[in-house]
């Protein structure tokens, strides 16, 4: 960790302290960048008097690392399903009896009791969607119906950016190659490595930050990205399109969880319940522009299959799994060899 990050972290931890004297309570949230509606946070503070601080991350790995480093100071985080599973197994999350919370009653039946948290002791689903890639239509007007456009680029070569972490990228490569997620077969993962290694000469950057600018400004013509972000930026006027590769998209579902050792558990639960109320969940869905696993007011919802095709995939969606250590090692080997 750089000194810079440390000092940022120190500042981030000092900030809430400054507000404590005044507030009736506080809740410190660590969430995907730009994932929680600022208006809802204001509304929550108005209604409950609880002060909210939000820090953000841009990969599940960052969130996991922060928790493993101990006493993160956060009360709510929003990792994806496979990381929820890992965090539960590693004892990093608090059993908050999520199934007794009012937020749980708002959940759609199909998202209750999933494999990563079968009894819903720890987690309340927040949003779900897919990881794929988007292209800038000012620069590229070719087809986007297959991962081959991105992974074996011809026209796009030299104009591609991928994420800086393997999680979704390797899963997507596996979908394309027909390799099973989390395989422990070295020979299978070698194929993934060879695909990504051959692609590398056409990739200008591996980075997970600042994606909207990079793709919107035409710095790159194709970028690995998430459905909702593409939608939001497209509606803001960017001429971009989210690809629907026939091999499938990588599915994810983020959940609200409370880290073990969190200090403001009641406030955290109040926040999660608040976010899951119908009106608030609707406003949040409209802001975040991802699909929501809770009941919302359909009439107020901004997104329909017509204006938001990103959120209604027409291709198979395969959710990322929590891999065994052996399988995870292979993923790591692919990535380290790729970037060596």
């Amino acid at each position: 960790m750089t000194t810079l990050k440390k000092s940022l972290l120190a500042t981030a931890m000092m900030l809430p302290m400054a507000g404590t004297a005044m507030a009736e309570g506080q809740v410190n949230i660590y969430a995907w960048s730009e994932s929680i509606s600022p208006e809802l946070i204001e509304k929550f503070t108005e209604e409950t008097g609880i002060e909210v601080t939000v820090d953000s991350y841009s990969s599940n790995e960052d969130a996991l690392t922060r928790l493993q480093a101990g006493s993160s100071g956060y009360d709510v985080i929003t990792p994806s399903q496979h990381f929820v599973k890992i965090m539960i197994d590693e004892g990093l999350l608090m059993d908050i009896d999520a199934n007794e919370m009012s937020a749980y009653d708002q959940l759609d039946e199909e998202w209750k009791g999933q494999w990563w948290d079968p009894e819903n002791d720890y987690s309340i689903p927040m949003a779900y969607g897919t990881a794929g890639f988007a292209v800038n239509r000012d620069i590229y007007d070719g087809p986007v119906d297959s991962w081959s456009v991105l992974f074996e680029p011809t026209e796009l070569a030299g104009k591609i950016a991928m994420l800086s972490y393997p999680d979704e990228v390797v899963s997507a490569a596996q979908l394309y190659l027909g390799v099973e997620y989390c395989t422990e077969e070295t020979s299978e993962m070698r194929k993934v490595y060879e695909l990504l290694d051959a692609q590398k000469s056409g990739v200008v950057a591996y980075t997970s930050d600042n994606i909207a600018n990079r793709l919107g400004s035409g710095e790159v013509a194709a970028h690995f990205w998430w459905d909702g972000q593409v939608l939001r930026n497209r509606l803001d006027g960017a001429n971009i399109e989210f690809a629907m590769p026939k091999e499938g998209l990588v599915g994810w579902l983020d959940s609200y969880v409370v880290p073990a050792g969190a200090e403001n558990v009641d406030e955290a639960k109040a926040f999660i319940n608040f976010m899951s109320e119908v009106d608030n969940a609707t406003a949040q869905a409209n802001y975040y522009a991802h699909s929501v696993p809770v009941e919302i007011n359909e009439e107020e919802s901004l997104y329909t299959p017509e204006n938001a095709p990103e959120l209604f995939p027409t291709v198979p969606v395969v959710f990322a799994q929590a891999c065994s250590p052996a399988a995870q090692d292979l993923v790591t080997r692919v990535w380290t060899d790729l970037l060596q």
Partner: peptide
């Protein structure tokens, strides 16, 4: 662009991805 690792980014990767 993070295409090739340096020691700093290598260390960071070990604690992250």
């Amino acid at each position: 662009g993070g295409r090739q690792l340096m020691m700093g980014t290598l260390i960071q990767n070990q604690f992250g991805g």
